[in-house]
């Protein structure tokens, strides 16, 4: 039976609630309020849905959002494809004492910070950068391959900053899987591919989905990598929000777009959860 919370309990929880209120609830309410404010041609401020309608009326906005969302889904899938073998290797193949050290190495990009890693990739990928110079020096190519300021460089950058958030939940899911499940499947006549598809993937699905959600949210909300590595056509939806605030000084529309991003990306996550048959509370744990 739960005991009735006493005075000390309230005393302890009050700072937390105040903190949440001051730093999370109030700013969001302010933004929400702003998003419904619209300045008419006469300079009057009225309540209106115009800021939200602007998103749907002008195809550049929703097209950019669709492009950003599709790209983010692609990067999420790619992150899974790239990191799954690594996660499997670290949890099931390598001895425990080495794997924790290697996992630590994976954290390095996070320690360094996004901006620095992005500049690092610029040095590697530019026309006369490290990779092109190397390839030319060993005689593999004659003219540099254009890698920087393309979708390729943007994808690399986005993958690099988000990979870890995919690999960690996946590793913990794989870690909790008893090796005997794999042996049992093999004993019952399953091939390696069947074991991967029918046993390992279903077992790690909660980890994959929770990693996928984090990666997707991180990528769709990123600003730095698309902006710096993406080149001339990489208009990301976040950049449009940034421009609303900073270039056209239209904070109301910026706020509305921010909430649309939150709403639309959350519904994509919701659909993904439904499709994969997962529940949020299960994935979250």
């Amino acid at each position: 039976m739960m005991k009735k919370p006493r005075g000390t309990f309230y005393l302890l929880i009050t700072p937390v609630l105040l903190w949440l209120l001051a730093l999370l609830v109030i700013p969001h309410l302010d933004m929400l309020y702003r998003s419904f404010r619209f300045e008419t041609d006469d300079g009057l401020w009225v309540f209106s849905l115009n800021n939200y309608l602007a998103f749907f009326e002008d195809q550049i906005y929703w097209l950019t959002f669709v492009k950003t969302a599709l790209y983010s889904i692609g990067v999420t899938i790619l992150a899974f494809v790239v990191t799954f073998p690594v996660a499997f290797f670290l949890t099931k193949v390598v001895a425990k004492k080495y794997s924790s050290f290697m996992t630590l190495l994976l954290l390095i990009p996070i320690w360094i910070g996004e901006l620095v890693t992005v500049y690092g990739w610029m040095i590697l990928l530019r026309d006369n950068g490290v990779i092109n110079s190397f390839l030319i020096n060993i005689g593999l190519i004659e003219t540099p391959i254009v890698m920087l300021f393309t979708s390729f460089s943007m994808t690399v950058g986005l993958l690099y900053i988000s990979m870890l958030f995919m690999i960690v939940p996946m590793m913990s899911a794989l870690d909790s899987m008893d090796d005997s499940l794999i042996e049992a499947a093999s004993d019952l006549g399953a091939s390696k591919w069947t074991i991967f598809r029918q046993i390992i993937i279903p077992y790690t699905t909660p980890g994959i989905v929770s990693g996928g959600i984090i990666v997707f949210m991180l990528v769709i909300g990123d600003y730095v990598a698309p902006n710096i590595l993406g080149g001339k056509s990489s208009l990301w939806f976040t950049e449009q929000i940034y421009n609303k605030f900073l270039a056209s000084f239209n904070w109301s529309e910026g706020a509305a777009f921010g909430f649309l991003l939150l709403l639309l990306s959350s519904s994509i996550v919701w659909v993904a959860l439904k499709l994969s048959g997962q529940k949020l509370d299960k994935v979250g744990s």
């Binding site: 550049i60 950019t64 001339k232 056509s233 208009l235 421009n243 609303k244 270039a247 056209s248 239209n250």
Partner: peptide
């Protein structure tokens, strides 16, 4: 101008 810039970027 902001809208023009968005369109060019996109």
């Amino acid at each position: 101008e902001a809208k023009v810039l968005d369109k060019i970027k996109a």
